[in-house]
Amino acid sequence: MLTLFFVDDLPTTVGQIYEFDNEDANHAVRVLRMKAGDLFMLSDGQGSWSQVKAFAVKKKSLEVEVMASGFQEALPTTITVVQALPKSDRAKEAIELLTEAGVDRIVPWQASRSIGKVSEKFSVTAREASKQSRRLRIPEVTDIATTQQICEAIKLSDLAIVFHESTTTKLSDAISSHNVASLLVIIGPEGGITPTELDQFVEAGAKVALMGRPILRSAHAGIAAVAAISALLKVW
């Protein structure tokens, strides 16, 4: 698969000559050692893409020609993951894994037992992980949300699932329909979701499910949840 980079002013006309000169271009020249004749992909991060061929390599940029272009439609199910904030390194890892899983929106949550803090670099992490995983749509990373805001989001979702070790309900039993346009997944902190928070989510309409027998780290639980639900909903 061709290497992917993001640009703000994506060229889409076949035969068009384009000056690729942002930070990604600098990386392509200095780190990846791209040369004339190399093919790679450019995207606007919102589904549009162009396959380009380099024909002139400069100190920090490349001149390329557009060989083909197109648009990748979004999947029928929009997936939002509410991620309670773990410690800084774990938070970055969670953003990377959720991006690789194909999540559309990541909502950092300052749960009662959260120990991490929101970083302005979360969006950068999502962008870099999108390049690594060759996804043409960069997930949105929102501002930190309160428990009340998450309850409101639950009410607006077709299906909201909160994972908690206290329940005996299997994930497969919590999903009764494949017709889900808006999915919300809630992942708690390392210290667990408090009984009060869980009651609020259930009252707002969320289903509580068990994610197997092993207890995953908060940063790892999201990708496991999204993978399982995507398979059950036939998104994958």
Rank of each mutant, 00 (worst) to 15 (best):
K59I: 03
F40T: 10
A56K: 12
Q72K: 14
G45Y: 05
M41S: 13
D44N: 15
K35L: 08
E63P: 00
V66Q: 04
R30K: 15
S69M: 05
V31D: 06
A56N: 02
D38H: 15
A68L: 05
V31Q: 12
S48I: 00
S48T: 03
E63K: 14
K53D: 03
Q72P: 00
L39P: 09
M67D: 00
V57Q: 04
P76K: 12
M34I: 14
K58P: 00
K58A: 07
E73Y: 01
D38Y: 15
D38A: 15
M34R: 15
L62T: 03
M67Y: 02
S48E: 08
P76W: 11
F40A: 09
L32I: 09
Q72G: 03
S69R: 04
A56R: 07
M67F: 01
K53Y: 02
S43T: 03
A74W: 02
A36I: 00
K53T: 14
A56H: 07
F71A: 04
R30W: 03
S48C: 12
A68C: 05
S69D: 02
F40V: 11
Q72L: 10
V57W: 04
G70E: 08
L39G: 05
T77M: 07
M67H: 02
D38M: 12
S48D: 09
G37A: 07
V52W: 02
K60T: 11
E63L: 14
P76G: 12
K35R: 15
A68M: 07
K35S: 11
S43N: 09
Q51A: 13
M34F: 15
E65T: 15
S43K: 06
D44G: 11
G37F: 10
Q72W: 01
S61L: 01
D44K: 05
V31Y: 09
T77K: 10
T77R: 06
S43L: 06
R30F: 06
R33V: 11
L75F: 05
G37N: 10
G45W: 09
E65A: 13
K58C: 06
Q72T: 06
S43Y: 08
G37H: 05
R33F: 11
F40M: 12
G47H: 08
K58H: 07
F71E: 06
L39T: 13
M41E: 10
T77C: 14
M67W: 00
K60R: 14
V31E: 06
M41A: 13
K60V: 02
